[in-house]
């Protein structure tokens, strides 16, 4: 029973963190057909932005959190302006932008290295203490992460479903030319999606670093997992990505507790292989039926 509580508690926390960063990645792929390889770097920068504001400047924690969101969104805009926009008209946009964002990511990571040094630092945005369920202590930090993640997901869902900007994002993702013909300025939509994705990545970076530590390369591992979740869910399927993130978080926690930490990642990769063999377009990806 205690093991189950432990697995569910840490699995939900992991899943929540994965969901926040995966949704950003998925939105960008869904709207632009762009695999953003600088996503991990934004995640790192988000963590450091919170650190810089609340530790180095000594401002209150909520401001640190806000700073991460703002900096993440700005980096997202930077990636649009520096990598995506110049390549939009190129013949092989998907491949070119993939390579370009690897470059942008490397530059960003080295900026962090130069500014903050190579050594791991603790993330000051951390709530001490916890609540006891049976023999298991669930840290408040985990509960806060879950709460913030749910709030972020709710905000994103409301934005996509209810707002004018959200409708433009969905329309552009479903049919770019038709969206343009209805008066949507698609470059504006792309910029907004990258800014939103950057903000989500930064929040995820704050969460992840608050459970582990800050380091200039901390974004790599979560980004890889976000890609795995995207593939399992079906690339570009945002709601599927949230569901897949939660399932994978729980699965990873179960593996770590029952089989050992070193099997966690191996099992994820195994899962991707299985999904790609069994359902190549992902769990929630659908083969679209076109009737004439």
């Amino acid at each position: 029973m205690d093991v189950l509580v432990q697995i569910v508690a840490s699995g939900l926390t992991l899943g929540a963190m994965y969901a926040v960063s995966t949704v950003g990645l998925s939105l960008v792929y869904g709207s632009l057909n762009m695999l953003n390889m600088a996503h991990g770097a934004i995640l790192t920068i988000g963590g450091y932005a919170a650190y810089a504001v609340s530790q180095q400047l000594g401002w209150p924690a909520p401001l640190g959190f806000l700073a991460a969101i703002v900096v993440g969104a700005l980096i997202g805009l930077l990636i649009f302006a520096a990598a995506a926009r110049p390549l939009l008209k190129s013949r092989n946009f998907e491949t070119n932008v993939f390579i370009a964002t690897i470059g942008v990511g490397a530059v960003l990571e080295n900026v962090v290295l130069k500014l903050f040094g190579p050594y791991a630092k603790p993330q000051p945005l951390n709530i001490p203490g916890g609540v006891r369920v049976g023999a298991v202590l669930i840290p408040y930090q985990n509960i806060a992460i879950l709460g913030v993640a749910i709030a972020m997901m709710a905000i994103v869902a409301l934005l996509l479903q209810r707002s004018r900007a959200g409708r433009a994002i969905r329309a552009t993702a479903q049919n770019r030319e038709a969206a343009e013909l209805m008066g949507v300025h698609v470059h504006g939509v792309y910029a907004q999606v990258l800014a939103l994705s950057g903000a989500l990545a930064a929040v995820s970076g704050v969460m992840i670093s608050s459970l582990a530590t800050l380091s200039p390369t901390m974004g790599g591992d979560p980004m890889l997992k976000a890609f795995i979740i995207c593939v399992v869910a079906g690339l570009g399927n945002t709601y599927g990505a949230v569901a897949a993130a939660m399932v994978i978080g729980l699965l990873e926690a179960a593996t770590q507790y029952l089989l050992g930490v070193r099997f966690g990642f191996a099992l994820l990769l195994l899962l991707v292989i299985a999904v790609l063999i069994w359902r190549p377009s992902g769990f929630f990806g659908k083969a679209r039926i076109v009737r004439l």
Partner: peptide, 18 residues
């Protein structure tokens, strides 16, 4: 070139986006 995952009404509303 409809917005395939939207309803008819949502498609029509997209026409009134501006």
């Amino acid at each position: 070139m409809l917005f395939a995952d939207m309803t008819v009404l949502e498609n029509l509303r997209m026409g009134a986006y501006l």
